[in-house]
Design a protein around this nucleic acid. Structure first.
Length: 125
DNA sequence: ATCCTGACCCAAG
DNA sequence: GCTTGGGCCAGGA
């Protein structure tokens, strides 16, 4: 637990930040969006790589949350490590279809990351 | 203030 | 290959 061992430490810090007028999530999400938009058609990246490239390693789950909430993002170009599709239910088939339409090929259930992973650079514009 | 859950990830077995 | 357990973040109940 990086926020300390005390119970509720994380929630406490969150409330404190909000009370002081800061929105720690906004700049993170903005950074995530920048990185996500930099991935070209026909290429993919992973939740973890996006988070790290945005300057926030360990925040891969926050990337997933953003993709779920912000419908304007090219969500289908983000997959799990190793090229695994992580979208639940019917969305999985749609993601695969969208990727294939962009020319991305699969090896079994996974995206062929050797050929289609886009090398993200930190603080890319 | 917990508790729960999720489009995660990694190391082990 | 697959399953588990542990770690991590955010939002809602």
């Amino acid at each position: 637990m990086i926020f300390g061992s005390e119970p509720g430490a994380r929630a406490k810090l969150k409330r404190q930040l909000i009370r002081s007028g800061m929105r720690p999530n906004d700049d993170r999400d903005a950074a995530f969006r920048r990185i996500i938009h930099s991935i070209p058609r026909g290429k993919v990246s992973t939740y973890g790589k996006v988070a790290a490239a945005a300057g926030y390693p360990l925040y891969h789950r926050a990337v997933a949350r953003l993709l779920r909430v912000d419908v304007a993002l090219p969500w289908h170009r983000i997959v799990g490590v190793g090229g695994q599709i992580k979208v639940p239910g019917a969305g999985a088939a749609e993601q695969r279809l969208r990727l294939q339409m962009e020319g991305v090929k699969f090896r079994g259930r996974r995206v062929d990351m050797e050929k289609y992973e886009y090398p993200l650079r930190p603080w890319d514009t």
